[in-house]
Design a protein around this nucleic acid. Structure first.
Lengths: 198, 198
DNA sequence: GTCGAACTGGGACGAGCGTCCCACTTTCCC
DNA sequence: GGGAAAGTGGGACGCTCGTCCCAGTTCGAC
């Protein structure tokens, strides 16, 4: 293994950790599995991180920080707000179908954080990030269609996050594209009705 | 420990296992933790179950089979379909607030089942059960208000399950009752619009 | 009362885990 | 070029895990 500074090693280990978690789940993400994935020795892991827990905390924080908007209003939006939202959710479904392991890993990380009171803030931060991205998408969608949200955008964003989460979970279970699309349609409808003109 | 047949021991262990999972998560549900909760010896566990995996499989199947409808239309429903659905979801939120550990455990069991291809059917069965219960509630709600679903009830039920799931997840993260209620309102609205008269 | 089956408790096993230690090598700075 | 700091590899630790074994006890059937 070529020499590498601890500062370089940390992100490399986090990437490896994410791959392992996506593949085997958090339970399978042992220190040995992670260093094997990264092609490092066990000592390097504990040289870069104080403990596995500290590693997972940093992994969650880092993956949340760089999370990008998955629900994006399409650029050349034709139609009204509802259509735009529906297209955005359809885009999210494509993203989910393309890399289900990633979303599953994020769900697992949330539940891991939810278990320990000390780690609960990590889960909150994760969902605040989701809400932030949702808010951006919703604001953009309203601008594009000349609509205005009747409720604070943050509130609408919370609804969008919840709906997206539910769609993700049920799709991961059933892998039923048609059902997911139908739910997305209903969700877009509900969201559009929270704006003027309806 | 008083003498007990393997047939009696199995449900007792499953109850104990559920309590442990609700309290500590699936990762904390070791065979030793479970028998300690049940007040039994380790040998009794493997006398009643072939393995921990077989135990968890049976635990999931049993808890899914006896799952009851959490989203129920209130009996003395006044108002239209939307109001009834909203009241039903509010009832679910009360249920969730009263015993969050149970819903969190169910989510964790789903993800556990989702990880192993052999166990995937357990997750599917769980969500099929949810859909079944949702379908009953939706049918009842439509009857009570004289409404008719424009789409197959099964499809509407899938939407309800997804929305409920999303509401659960975000509430578990933020514990924000107001936000959950707002999302429930939007969800009820979306569902009501899938029926005639709207 | 006897006998075989059902059940119990405790201890042991091998394996995997997170973590640590230590001798060694490389790098960088004065 | 010498010496401190940074990074490396392998092996070992103590612990927990799932599982198994086995001697002993209790039960129901005859």
């Amino acid at each position: 293994m070529p020499r590498m500074s601890a500062a370089e090693r940390r992100p490399a280990l986090i990437e490896a950790g994410l791959r392992v978690i996506a593949r085997e789940g958090i339970a399978g993400a042992s220190t040995r599995a992670i260093v094997a994935e990264a092609g490092m020795s066990l000592a390097s892991f504990h040289y870069a991180f104080a403990s596995r827990e500290a590693f997972l905390d940093e992994l969650i924080a880092s993956v949340v920080a760089r999370e990008e908007a998955a629900v994006l209003p399409v650029a050349e939006g034709e139609g009204d707000l509802r259509d735009l939202l529906e297209a955005g959710l359809a885009g999210y479904l494509d993203h989910l179908r393309a890399d289900p392991a990633h979303e599953q890993a994020m769900l697992e990380l949330t539940q891991y954080a939810l278990r320990d009171p000390d780690r609960h803030p990590l889960a909150t931060a994760q969902y605040r990030r989701y809400a932030e991205l949702a808010e951006q998408a919703l604001t953009l969608a309203a601008e594009r269609t000349g609509a205005t949200w009747r409720r604070p955008v943050a509130e609408v964003a919370a609804v969008l996050v919840a709906f997206t989460d539910g769609i993700t979970m049920t799709w991961l279970v059933h892998r039923d594209d048609a059902a997911a699309r139908a739910t997305a349609l209903a969700a877009a409808d509900a969201l559009a009705r929270m704006a003027d003109p309806q």
